[in-house]
Simulated assay, not measured.
Amino acid sequence: MTPTAIGLILVSALMHAGWNLIGKRTAQTVRFYAWAMGLGMLVFSPLLVRSWSSVAALPADFWWLLLASGLCQTLYMSGLAKAYGQGNLNVVYPLARALPVLIVPLVVLISYGQSQLSAQDLLGMGLIMLGSLALPLVRWRDWHWRDYCTPAIGWVLLAACATAGYSVLDSAAIQIMKQQGMSAFDAGSSFVVLQAAACLLWMLPLVRWGFGESLRGVPDFGWTLLAGSFIIATYLLILVSMSMVSEVSYVVALRQVSIPLGVLIGVFWLRESVSPPRLQGLSVMLLGLVLVSL
C-alpha cells in the first residue's frame, strides 16, 4: 500500500471517529443521519457539477451498483443509529468497524474467486477481529456467549454486513469510473455525492414508514451539518484511496485505526467506563492493524 493511500486512510479514520462521536452525543435516530446525509450532499454537490459530463456518460452497470450501495449505506446508518441508542460508543463503534474486516475478504473471494491477501494480512485481520470480541467484556471471567446476543449487538451486525456490502460495491463502481477515464479524485468526489442521493432514496421512506420518525425540522442544525460534512469528506478520502490499492480488503482493514480513536473518545469525552479486557482487546487490534499496514 502506498504512503499516500495510508495517509488518506488515517485522516479519514480520525474524521470517522469524529462524526460517530457527534452521532452518539447528539441523537440516536435514523432521522439524524438522514438529515446529515442530505446536508453533507448539498455541501459537496459542486464537486458533482464539476464532473457531470463524465458522470452522465457512465454505463448502466454503474448506476445499478450505485443504487445497491445506497441501500447498504441506509442499512449501515440505521443499524448504527439503533445500536448507539442501546449501547456504549466504546463497544458499538469498535465492533461495527471490526467485523467487516473479515466479511469483506470473504465477499471478495466469493465474488472474484481469488484474493491478493498474504498470510500476514490474514493474520492481522484475524487479530483485529479477535480483539473486537473482548470489547463488550468487563471481566474475563464474566465472558458468556449471551454478551453478544443483545439488541445493540444485533444492530451492530446489520451495520457491519452493510459496511461490507457498500465497500465491495463502491470499489467496483470506482473501477468503472476509472475505466471511463475519470481521475481518482473526480471519481471519488462525484461518487460520494451520488451515493448520498441514492442513500436518501432508500432512507427517507424507511425513516417515515419503517421507524415512524418525523422528518420535520433539522435535529440540532450545527452538529448535523458538521456530521454530514464529515461523513461525506471521510468517505471521499476512502474512495480515492481505494483507487490506489490492489484489493479493497486492505482499505477496510487499515481504516479500523479509527477503532482505538473511538474508544478513547468514549472514555475521555463521554466518560464511558473501560475495562482491562477492552484495553487488552484494543492492544490486539492495534497489532493486527500494524501487520496489515506493513
Score class of each variant (00 low, 15 high):
114 Q>L: 12
193 V>D: 03
165 G>S: 03
162 A>I: 05
134 A>D: 05
129 M>Y: 10
100 P>V: 15
172 A>T: 12
141 R>S: 15
180 Q>P: 12
115 S>G: 07
154 G>Y: 02
83 A>M: 07
122 L>H: 08
123 L>Y: 10
163 T>P: 02
108 V>M: 08
206 L>I: 07
165 G>R: 01
150 T>C: 09
115 S>W: 00
136 P>T: 09
172 A>Y: 03
171 S>F: 09
94 P>E: 00
109 L>H: 04
170 D>A: 00
214 S>C: 10
203 M>Q: 15
124 G>S: 14
118 S>F: 05
122 L>M: 11
207 V>K: 05
95 L>D: 00
138 V>D: 13
108 V>F: 08
195 Q>K: 07
183 S>L: 03
151 P>G: 12
171 S>I: 13
151 P>S: 15
115 S>L: 09
92 V>K: 00
129 M>D: 07
104 V>I: 14
167 S>W: 07
111 S>F: 14
149 C>R: 15
184 A>V: 05
137 L>G: 10
149 C>L: 15
85 G>S: 06
196 A>G: 04
199 C>L: 05
211 F>D: 08
179 Q>P: 02
142 D>C: 02
206 L>R: 04
78 S>R: 09
201 L>S: 02
208 R>K: 11
80 L>Q: 12
178 K>E: 08
103 I>A: 13
179 Q>E: 13
201 L>H: 01
184 A>N: 09
145 W>G: 08
193 V>L: 07
117 L>A: 13
152 A>S: 14
169 L>Y: 04
192 V>Y: 00
110 I>S: 06
151 P>N: 14
201 L>M: 07
151 P>I: 15
120 Q>I: 13
112 Y>F: 15
216 R>H: 14
196 A>T: 00
209 W>R: 04
217 G>D: 11
110 I>Q: 02
111 S>H: 12
207 V>S: 05
167 S>A: 14
208 R>C: 06
87 G>T: 01
198 A>E: 00
154 G>R: 03
86 Q>C: 09
175 Q>L: 14
106 L>W: 14
114 Q>Y: 12
142 D>N: 09
81 A>M: 01
111 S>W: 15
105 P>L: 04
194 L>S: 06
87 G>C: 00
86 Q>T: 13
203 M>I: 10
79 G>L: 10
121 D>Y: 06
195 Q>L: 07
207 V>L: 06
210 G>V: 06
213 E>G: 08
88 N>G: 00
169 L>A: 14
203 M>H: 03
204 L>Q: 07
203 M>R: 07
158 L>D: 11
126 G>F: 01
140 W>V: 13
146 R>K: 09
85 G>R: 03
121 D>G: 08
179 Q>R: 13
174 I>P: 13
120 Q>D: 08
133 L>W: 14
166 Y>G: 04
138 V>K: 15
94 P>G: 03
